[in-house]
Design a protein around this nucleic acid. Sequence first.
DNA 1: TTCGGGATTATCT
DNA 2: GATAATCCCGAAC
Length: 239
Amino acid sequence: MTGQPGKSDSASFQSGELLPLSFYAVSALEAAPRLLGQVLVRETAEGTIRCRIVETESYGGIEDKGSHAYGGRRTARTEIMFGEGGAAYIYLIYGMYHCLNVVTGPPDDPQAVLIRAVEPLTPGDEALMRARRGSRARRPVDLSGGPGKLCRALEIDKSLNGALLHRSDSPLRLEAGWPGPGRAPAAAPGGEAAPPPAVIAAPRINIAYAAEYADLPWRFYYRDNPYVSVIDKERGVPY
DNA sequence: TTCGGGATTATCT
DNA sequence: GATAATCCCGAAC
């Protein structure tokens, strides 16, 4: 473990396999950059949608003034964050949009990672997402670049709150991705895998109320990825 | 292309 | 009663 959580000693997993429960047994600050590149799987009536996570935000525990669990606030809404890592925490924001989070850490230590942007893996996945976004989804960022938008595209609402992301029978789960950009495994058999895209760390979005926690670089995204919601050219730094 | 304001309701004070 | 981990559309430049 180094001073830069998640940068070192991150385990690699077999592409396409479910991420094991142990993947979630770390702090949100460690998990947030590690979640980049992993694959979110959503089962809908129309079919299975797979998409790669390309932007995340860490909400780390009771001392983080940006977190719903700040000060240990344990309510019906935040209850799932107080459970074991591996569950989905989903809430309604501004009366009309849902946000998806991945709970991390041990029980009674409320931490979560907000999923802010995803990209479809295949044209088939994109078509299923586009069907829910309609004509609004002109550019990639309009399809699923933003926490509310990706929940719309993936038909995610509070009925999925508490879904266990490590279980194969869950309608919402997480599989190991593959390193490198693109929409297919980068390495040919016996070939060398492409290096993963560069990661940028930048301040989180729309949490001015979080005071001294508002400017911490706890948002992570792939540089140059067209699905990322906000490119921070001023404060974004290589991770 | 950028900017400003309205939408809409669960949640907490 | 006020607020919110946001999005969308129309107006203006």
